[in-house]
Write a protein that binds this DNA or RNA. Structure first.
Length: 313
DNA sequence: TCGATTTGACCCCA
DNA sequence: TGGGGTCAAATCGA
């Protein structure tokens, strides 16, 4: 949980930094303001995800086979670090269910797949960073669904498994195409308990750890020590496509509409008495990153080759 | 129109 | 050789 707290603090820090330069940004560089706001959204999303995964770990442990708190304190998120394992989970009967081998073969195929070229050996990747957890179904009306784990997943396959009443579903991270996020998961209902899902995670999420540099006030001054950085950033911002104005962020007395382009950004529509809280509220209720964030990630990839090293942090 | 889901087929590995 | 993982075209839905 320390990690989540740290990420929240980071996000708040970014928010304060942005506030300090808000008047200048809103008047002179509304597009940079947009980029900064989206960076902060990403930071808050990191924190939200951290909290979700930690909470889910605890729920899973409580539901099945709670063990000593010392084992529970393992701070890593839900199996997204390569090579991690969660040896504390078990079924009610006592037999450990966590494994790196229950999923009979490893995830993955050579990027681009298909029948052309060489394929990466599945066996070679077996057991690497795979984590299996069992989670209770979330019942919504007559439906039972696997609980949300804080990420957005795209289903890419479903397979009937021999000996299982229920098919296994295959998911990959929605942001794979934009940010090369290789996180995947398998979801299967248990024969013995249809209200329980076995979820196997593999791969590390990179989509929630955007390293897109925050637009700092120093970049906006005439003394900009890195004019090339500013030029790259303006270039990137100029390419951000318009998205529907579904997300508005209030900063101080300024409502910033994340879905507007430069001409429409920075519109003042009302005062705020607690800008940081307003911003956090908007972010925590805005759901996971949308198309605008995808655009940022995409642009970041385009500029990875030329982005100055000293702005990586 | 575009993104997500479905589903049949292909390929790898035990 | 068959099971499991993935691809990709078809379909669906907002």
């Amino acid at each position: 949980m320390d990690r989540a707290i740290s990420q929240i603090l980071d996000a708040c820090k970014l928010t304060h930094e942005l506030e300090a330069s808000l008047p200048h940004l809103a008047n002179q560089h509304p597009s940079l303001l947009k980029t900064s706001c989206e960076n902060i959204v990403a930071a808050f999303n990191n924190a939200i995800h951290e909290i979700n995964t930690q909470q889910q770990q605890i729920q899973a442990m409580d539901f099945f086979s709670p063990r000593s708190i010392e084992e529970h304190n393992n701070p890593f998120p839900l199996g997204f670090d390569a090579g991690c394992e969660m040896p504390f989970l078990g079924v009610s009967g006592g037999e450990a269910v966590v494994d790196g081998s229950s999923a009979s073969s490893a995830f993955g195929r050579r990027p681009g797949g298909g029948s052309t070229g060489q394929r990466q050996s599945r066996k070679r990747r077996e057991n690497r960073g795979m984590t299996t957890v069992r989670v209770p179904a979330v019942r919504t009306g007559n439906m039972e669904n696997p609980p949300d784990d804080g990420y957005t997943w795209r289903k890419y396959g479903q397979k009937d498994i021999l000996g299982s009443r229920f098919p296994r579903s295959y998911f990959r991270c929605t942001h794979k195409s934009f940010y090369g996020c290789d996180a995947k998961k398998q979801v299967q209902r248990l024969d013995e308990d249809p209200y329980t899902y076995e979820v196997t995670y593999c791969g590390d999420h990179t989509c929630h750890t955007s390293t897109t540099p925050l637009v700092l006030p120093s970049l906006l001054t005439n003394n900009d020590p890195q004019p090339q950085t500013s030029a790259l950033m303006f270039d990137a911002i100029a390419q951000i496509p318009q998205v529907p104005p579904s997300t508005s962020i209030q900063l101080g007395s300024t409502w910033f509409d994340a879905g507007r382009d430069e001409a429409g950004a920075g519109q003042v529509v009302g005062p705020s008495e607690c800008p940081v809280a307003d911003l956090a509220d908007v972010m925590f209720n805005s759901g996971s990153s949308g198309s605008s964030m995808d655009a940022i990630f995409s642009l970041r990839q385009q500029h990875d080759q030329s982005w100055p090293k000293d702005n990586e942090e």
